[in-house]
Amino acid sequence: MSRLTLPQTTPGVASRHVMPHTDVVIESLPKVSLHDHLDGGVRPTTIVELAREGGLSLPADTAGPLADWFRTAADSGSLVSYLETFAVTLSVMQTAPNLSRIAAEFVEDLAADGVIYGEIRWAPELHTQKGLSIDDAVRAVQSGIEQGIANVATSGRTIRIGQLLCAMRQNDNGLAVAQLAVAHRESGVVGFDIAGPEAGFPASRLADAFAYLDEHWMPRTIHAGEADGLDSIAGALSDGRALRLGHGVRLADAIHHARDDDPRAVRMDRLAEWVLNRKIALEVSPTSNLQTGAFAEYGDTMADHPFDILYRLGFTVTVNTDNRLMSGTTLSREIAVLVEVFGYTLDDVLDFQLNAAQSAFLPADERETLVSLIIDAFERA
């Protein structure tokens, strides 16, 4: 692991991180979360309670040990092993009431961390084991989101949330999920994603889904450059027409040292230039990337993460959590990790939030409003 000094966190439990040499609490800053999985951010207390109600067995019977189990199991260095932990969370997410409750708590936890705009991604096809239709699953999650927003409002805070519907790239439900996303675009869904095992399952397998999304001008982000390399990223852009890349850290493979006498001089492949020049956002999740071995060929500590290289070269990097339960993290903690490792300042943190706000799947005028809110708050910090 990264040998960081920052303790891990648990969904539903408050945390506090302070910018070095200041009194600025990161949790108090307005933030944008673009890459956060619903089934990866369930409160351990909720899992225990719902499992007990449903007669389900768990790796641990109480919330604390269960949270520890998730973090240990996820800390494998393998995306495939990391994804296996989701069998536990998914087991309690198979009914409409459970989905609504988990979505509401998810929103509350984001707001408690200072998130003012978030996109929650999840795969409806994984929530049908007890007969729930994918359409009813989307409605249940939206109901929970709206309840969570209302609960947050009672404390005087505001948050806006959109759904990103994921199709599992190893299955054959892409077109159905694309149609579902379009059908619910006026009732909470803001975009489409493909998730699951990346290697061996290129974006081209879902050509019919992307063609349908093209017909209806539906934006999409695609997991790429996490567990596979440049071909996967290229496929996400050319076959999937992605506007953002989920993780995208392997884009660093397309950046090369140009001169031995100047370590700052680099040469980029055309693919990297394309992503850079078109400001295609990279949804980077530092702790998750370390856990899954996304940048293992560069090293095994957070200091080896290519985030800083990408940021210094001008790529549109954003900071995300991926799966808060499995990584024992929050968006504020992810920022604090990067600050600790790379020495970032408040201005850098502002850059990350502006990148995310400007890349949100919102109308242009609403993105600008979001940008203004963030700038004003950072200026007052």
Rank of each mutant, 00 (worst) to 15 (best):
R3A: 15
R3V: 09
T9W: 12
T9L: 12
T9P: 12
T22I: 01
L29S: 05
V42A: 08
I47C: 08
E49K: 14
R52F: 06
G64T: 12
P65T: 05
T72I: 12
S78E: 07
L83A: 11
L83Q: 12
T89S: 06
Q94E: 11
P97L: 02
V107F: 08
A112M: 13
A112L: 13
A123Q: 06
S133W: 04
I149R: 15
T154D: 06
S155I: 01
I159V: 15
Q163P: 01
L180K: 04
V182E: 10
H184I: 11
H184T: 10
F192W: 03
D208W: 05
Y212S: 00
Y212A: 00
W217G: 00
A227E: 10
L230C: 14
A234P: 01
A236Q: 03
D253E: 15
D261C: 15
P263Y: 03
V266P: 00
L271M: 10
R278A: 07
L282G: 03
T287I: 13
Q291G: 08
E297V: 10
D300K: 08
H305V: 04
P306T: 06
V319A: 05
V319E: 07
S327V: 08
Y344R: 06
A360T: 10
F361M: 14
R367N: 09
S372L: 14
A377C: 00
F378I: 02
F378V: 01
R380L: 14
